[in-house]
Computed example of a mutant assay.
Amino acid sequence: MKLPPISVDRKRTQSEMDLPSPPVTPYTGTKKTKENTSDQLEREAVGGSSRDPVLFPRHGHNVDIATDEPLFGPIIPPTAEALVEQHIDSHMARFENKLNKPTRDEYLLALSCVPIVSAQYNRNPAAWAREERETLERQLAMMQRSRPSELESKLKKIAPAPTKRVVGSHNRVQRTSRVKRTPRSTPKQKAHDTFNSPSPPSNKPPRAIGTNRDDTDYDSIKDYCPPLNTLGNNAKGLKADWKGQMLDLSHDPDRHLLSPAELSLAATLRLSCATYLCSKRRIFEARVRTLNVEKEFRKTDAQQACKIDVNKASKLWTAYERVGWFDRKHFQQYIKK
């Protein structure tokens, strides 16, 4: 787009363009003939005219300019300026990551604040202390006036203490004497030659410690366990950590069904051989179910499948996972195609 040309009456002559700023107002209410000479403009500016005065006259004219009064208010002494600059340079690094940084005007405002408390105190310290004491006592009196009314509504009235009554000797009721009880004799105990407590005679075989009677029928659970020969050199990995003394399985009737590594694992977890076999078969039965539904076999699945402590089930899962008994290759014949 092209702008329209400037009208003739708005064009500036070369002499007007050479004048210093600000430009002279061309109109003062009525149209007048422009004076193009610079001498006429300066004469009107000095002698007084309706045109704007010249702020920066040409050299050669003596114009009185007040140099003792500042143009924009009082000037702060150089010492204060230097103090502000020094303080800003030394402390502004702490406000680099802050949103509200102190500005220069705020520094100058802080310098303009002059404390007068010490000056008033030094005039008459006794009068100052007396006035402060009167103010404090007046505040305490106002607090005490409002306090009782509030406390009366909150305090609970307590009944007076009962008075002691003196009862005459003739009104006393004589108590009946209690019947004396004969002390019971301590039953005689039979002395034993040793500190070992004698076991009561019983025809039942002793129950193995750490077993669960409800989960010892391993023959009722289908056996999906990998063969023991798949351990190979990984037999050392079939172990677990458990607090407490190992269970003695030397006389367990099912110990021949466990490998030496499994026997040590069951003794560490304080499981009888029958309970260990039940838990083992339940874990691998659950593994086959997850393979048929293409699901990952996790530690929680083993805990839900067993009927023993969940921590012991977790130890079995970890040991079987370490020796690779959860690999898919051990269960190819049981996976439904």
Rank of each mutant, 00 (worst) to 15 (best):
N196G: 10
S220E: 06
Y224G: 02
A191R: 07
L140K: 06
K180M: 03
A159G: 14
A161P: 06
N171Q: 12
I158N: 13
S146Y: 10
N212Q: 11
R165Q: 12
P205T: 00
I209T: 14
N229C: 02
P226Y: 07
S149C: 11
M142C: 10
P183W: 01
L151T: 07
R207C: 01
L228F: 08
G232Y: 04
H192Y: 03
P160V: 06
E150V: 02
P187A: 08
P201W: 02
D215S: 09
Q139F: 06
D193G: 00
R175I: 00
D219L: 14
T216R: 01
T186Y: 08
R207L: 02
R181N: 00
P187L: 06
P148K: 12
R184D: 14
G232P: 02
N229S: 04
K154A: 11
L140Y: 14
I221F: 07
K188E: 10
L228Q: 14
S169C: 10
L228A: 10
M143V: 02
R145T: 12
K190M: 10
T194H: 00
I209M: 12
V166G: 15
R172Y: 04
V173R: 13
L155F: 09
D219C: 07
P187F: 01
I221N: 01
H170V: 09
S202Q: 06
Q189R: 13
K180D: 06
S199E: 07
E137R: 15
N203Y: 07
K154G: 01
T216K: 05
I158E: 14
V167N: 00
P187E: 09
A208T: 01
P227N: 08
R172K: 03
L155A: 13
Q139T: 13
P226R: 06
A159N: 15
Q189F: 09
D217V: 02
A159C: 14
L136T: 11
T176H: 05
T194M: 07
P200C: 07
T211F: 04
S149W: 14
Q144M: 02
P206W: 07
L140P: 02
P200M: 04
T163A: 15
R138F: 01
K188V: 00
I209Y: 12
T211V: 03
R181H: 11
P200E: 08
R175L: 11
N171E: 15
G232N: 13
A208Y: 05
D214G: 10
N229Q: 01
T163V: 03
K156Q: 12
R184T: 13
P205Y: 04
K156P: 06
S220A: 06
P198R: 04
D223C: 12
N212F: 07
S220P: 00
K222P: 04
L151Y: 08
R213E: 06
S185F: 12
R175N: 13
V167E: 08
S199N: 02
K157V: 14
S153T: 01
D214M: 09
P162E: 04
K156F: 05
E137M: 15
D219Q: 14
N229G: 08
P160M: 08
V179C: 10
N212C: 00
Q144I: 11
H170G: 04
P201G: 01
R181K: 07
M142Y: 05
G210P: 02
Q144F: 13
S202H: 01
Y218F: 15
L228W: 02
R213T: 03
K157G: 15
S149G: 15
T216Q: 05
V179S: 12
S197I: 06
K180T: 05
K180H: 10
A141H: 03
P198C: 03
N171L: 09
T182H: 08
K188Q: 15
L136M: 15
